[in-house]
Design a protein around this nucleic acid. Structure first.
Lengths: 206, 206
DNA sequence: GAAAGCGTTGACTAATTTAGTCAGTTGTGT
DNA sequence: ACACAACTGACTAAATTAGTCAACGCTTTC
């Protein structure tokens, strides 16, 4: 594993992405043959780096968690009290992460929902997921300026809906990229996102 | 296959659900052994019904498409011009379908996104998905009473956001059911949905 | 220039899993 | 008691699996 960390960035990213892509379907279903083919390395090298499939899996889970947590803390540090503006900033981060690691969200969701099939501790993963998912919402709720919302709108519900909206757009853009193979879709995404966030702003803010 | 259709309802549903559950991860990854174990039938019987794995797959795709199309047409026939009320009705249908076929949405999404891995025609599946997904939106947009919306709110964007919101809630309820094993979550879902739809109503309607 | 040491390869293996079969058992109706 | 289904699960040949290992190429060092 120290050997892997010593490899050059490009190769590391290729291996991580190939592993995340394959592990989306669960630990057992993933084939190391597919991973090495995808990453463009030999079978021997993968096992030279990680020793076992399980070690590779654990490494990638940890990597994904840390990457997303870093994202989470960055978000917190925006210190933006206008929640819609804050979510916009988050989306910028998310675009960057998805650009580099296209399967990371899919992967971490799968790790969570298929926890029983996989080897890692369920409690740990639940906690992780809570941090990446629900806690982010709580955090956003606690920090944001709720007085911006109209009096008859429940800010918590509104924030939830905004997050679901961002997710919906994100997933649709990814679907589009998958079926049409556009690479510049993330720019379109940001443009559309601005409009959707404005719709929310008009509807939910004073 | 006629033999399968002659089998009793309970067994048919069990087989269809087991197949959808397994085929979510793609045609090749699915194991007929897992399907028969899940469905509680013998290996021989499955092949007595369908002959090959591929025939089974095609049958289940067609079944899912038809089931969802039926849902789509029912929705259209509500003839409800208040789109939020219409979406409420759709959610009731969706709950019923997901109750009977818990993997049908996951399955049809997977069939679409993994079209290249699978055997069925990509063009056909794209069309199907468009009908179940995007066209539903167009249809809803064309038929609904846009004058209910505030003048400064783009009805198309608002409707999209509402649909994404319903999806978000639905997915979260399913996640909850998976991790906590609640069975009555669909009722909670409807309760919460009412509230979220009211939030939308307050924000986007005049 | 040779030896040592590393990253890297891919053919190889033993074990498991795969889709599909088939001889035989159970059930049902006459 | 017979016929003719539905149904079973042990079985097979082929494919796939995680992991190994002898050998290759490329620097570095003397």
């Amino acid at each position: 594993m120290e050997r892997f960390l010593a490899a050059d960035e490009g190769k590391r990213v290729r291996i991580i992405n190939a592993a995340m892509k394959e592990f989306r379907y669960g630990f057992k279903r993933a084939s190391t043959d597919t991973i090495v083919r995808d990453a463009g390395i030999s079978k021997g090298l993968l096992f030279h780096y990680f020793g076992t499939k399980e070690t590779l899996y654990e490494f990638v889970v940890e990597f994904a968690v840390e990457t997303l947590q870093k994202d989470f803390y960055d978000m917190v540090n925006f210190g933006q009290s206008d929640i819609i503006e804050n979510i916009w900033q988050q989306a910028l981060l998310r675009r960057d992460i998805s650009d580099k690691y296209p399967y990371i969200y899919d992967f971490i969701t799968a790790v969570h929902t298929q926890a029983k099939d996989n080897s890692a501790s369920v409690a740990f993963l639940t906690e992780v997921y809570a941090q990446v998912g629900q806690n982010m919402l709580n955090f956003a709720y606690d920090r944001c300026d709720r007085t911006l919302f109209r009096a008859d709108i429940d800010p918590r519900k509104a924030i939830t809906l905004i997050i679901w909206g961002v997710n919906g757009l994100f997933e649709e853009v990814e679907r589009r990229m998958l079926t049409h193979g556009d690479t510049d879709s993330y720019d379109v995404f940001l443009e559309e996102l601005r409009e959707y966030l404005n719709t929310f702003r008009k509807g939910f803010y004073k």
